[in-house]
Amino acid sequence: MAVDYTKYLRMDKMPLYWCPGCGDGIVLKCYLEAIDELGWGKDDCAMVSGIGCAARVTGYVDFHTLHTIHGRAIAVAAGIKMSHPDKHVFVFGGDGDIVHIGGNHLLHACRRNVDVTVVLINNWIYGMTGGQHSCTTPPGAKASTAPRGTFEPTIDVCQMAIGAGAGYVARGFAGDPTRLKKLIKEGLEYKGFSLIDVFSPCPINFGRRNKLGDPAKLLEHMKSFLVSSAKAKRMSEEELKGKFVMGVLHKDTEKPELTASYKGLIEKAQASDEYWAKYVKGTLTEDDKDKITREELKKLYPYDVETPLKEWKKL
């Protein structure tokens, strides 16, 4: 049955502001289908984004949404998740936002395995600012800051995330929405950090400069870089050079999730007999509160316990 997307979208914010042929809408659709299949309520969902075209998703989805500064969405999301471990927290962002300027936060969210799902819309370019090359622009491709083609190598963000210890890492393609939805859904369900790297076309700012202005042509071009994980298994290292593997690349069901680990730490701390632990349990005795009497204190210190507070209140 078709999904009623309007249920999850702020329809008064339509039409979407993305360019014709942009992949962002396809990825958003796949993501909403996955949410719908999971039956998660809007009230339990929070989404954070940074800056960029993909980051505008927070304006459209009818969740608790936070549109923050460039590159920091994952750090913000970690703060939300740690404060509300029972809620679902997501991040949407582009390659410039998540991988390039925000790379450090991505690495450490992977390591912590905090239960946040990151949908990375990887269009190989800084779209919003006018087509400057990013850390994912293929070598030799033209960009507004690389009129003769880029001279920098790129990064395989999925391999980086796996190396950093992410629990779930997958790569999808905007040209294959059926599989993309499944990958996102599996990432959402995963208890831990999940990254879904989605190759998605930017015909206006990447395509046109590289004679790929036709969205269908650009999708074909992007596809030529991708191989399925099944096919990749049969390929040699030499053959895989310059290719990006699609599908679920890594899933660690053993690695503890961060908020669960922290819960364990809380239990350990509260089992102690220290002041605040007793305070929380309500088992403080008079002795805990004040080991020195006020009279003794007056002799030890030029002013008694009430004076500083009183004096400060007067200021």
């Binding site: 954070v48 750090a75 936060h105 450490h108």
Partner: peptide, 18 residues
């Protein structure tokens, strides 16, 4: 956190949520 930037951003996330 991993850096000073992440730490204040995490705080912004927490405080925005309440």
């Amino acid at each position: 956190m991993e850096d000073e930037i992440a730490s204040i951003n995490a705080c912004v996330g927490a405080t925005a949520s309440g």
